[in-house]
Nucleic acid binder design. Structure first.
Length: 292
DNA sequence: CTGCATGTTAGGTT
DNA sequence: CAACCTAACATGCA
């Protein structure tokens, strides 16, 4: 499940191998992966040069000449690999890019077929319309901005962290890991979070993301970098996927629970249930008095 | 066989 | 409008 650190890992590998290359042939085997018709997609790209490879949230952006860009979103199980052209086509290979003067290919694989790509022209200053709604990058936003951003919302923290309009790039794994490191319960309401706790979350989130990038991402199921190597951050996960196992901080059993419709792992001792504010307590009391 | 997992979006409700 | 909920997508795995 590629989130910010996995996409960043992939982008770094692609940047090394693809910058300055020119597409020679683009073959689309599965129509729905590509926003345009396979013909116009391939025709558009063939002959174009890759100027830069970058990341925005969980999106991969390959900048081409004339303000054009190839955008790729891996969703849940998508992957990009650079392989020798003679390598046998792996199952679920849906798009194959070849390059002028290079004996290897870039291949897009995706067992679940949720990943999407498309070409797009920017609206000036490199701004891409399909990325306009994304929130700030967690590794670029300042602590001050983060505090006011959290304060501007009235939601539980877990679904808030997963909302790409709030912050770009955080997914289920790193949301849980950051909340655990910051000692904050996933159901804690953003509007009731004190400044010190918001700062803790800010630091925890950034630390986790940086460490995960350094480890080459987390490979829980399928993630691999551009050369096909797995990440190493799964060894450092403290809560994600560890239901029933001992918390590495306090020994308590890690709990799994749905929050905002998503599986959420946390330590009930390190991340205590948020204390209700005065107003919420009285509402609770009214509900109890009504016989709930 | 059943149900569940992931990320996103669309659609509807509160 | 903001927040929230559910379904849909396709496949592999327990």
């Amino acid at each position: 499940m590629p989130e910010l650190p996995e996409v960043e890992t992939l982008v770094r590998g692609l940047r090394d191998q693809l910058t300055h290359l020119r597409f020679s042939k683009v073959a689309v085997n599965l129509k729905k992966c590509v926003r345009e018709s396979p013909r116009s997609f391939a025709h558009f790209l063939e002959g174009k040069k890759i100027l830069l490879v970058e990341r925005r949230g969980k999106n991969i952006i390959m900048r081409l000449s004339g303000g054009n860009a190839l955008l790729v979103h891996l969703r849940m199980t998508g992957g990009l690999r650079v392989v020798p052209e003679e390598a046998p086509l792996e199952k679920h290979t849906h798009v194959v890019f070849s390059f002028q003067g290079r004996p290897w290919q870039l291949r897009f694989l995706d067992p679940r077929q949720f990943g999407r790509m498309g070409v797009e022209k920017d609206r000036g200053r490199g701004e891409l319309a399909s990325l306009a709604a994304l929130g700030p990058e967690p590794l670029e936003i300042s602590s001050k901005e983060f505090v006011s951003l959290v304060r501007s919302k009235r939601r539980s923290l877990k679904p808030l962290l997963l909302d790409q309009r709030f912050l770009a790039g955080v997914g289920n794994i790193y949301a849980d890991e950051a909340l655990h490191r910051a000692h904050i319960h996933p159901r804690q309401r953003s509007e009731a979070l004190e400044r010190r706790a918001i700062s803790r979350l800010y630091r925890a989130l950034r630390q986790i993301l940086r460490e995960a990038i350094r480890a080459g991402g987390t490979s829980v199921r399928t993630f691999a970098d551009a050369r096909g190597s797995a990440g190493r951050f799964q060894k450092f996960l403290r809560v994600y996927g560890r239901e029933g196992e001992a918390c590495r901080t306090c020994g308590e059993a890690i709990v799994r629970e749905k929050v905002g419709g998503r599986s959420t792992y946390y330590c009930p001792r390190c991340q205590p249930v948020p204390r209700l504010s005065r107003g919420e307590r009285s509402e609770e009391k009214v509900a109890l008095d009504r016989g709930n």
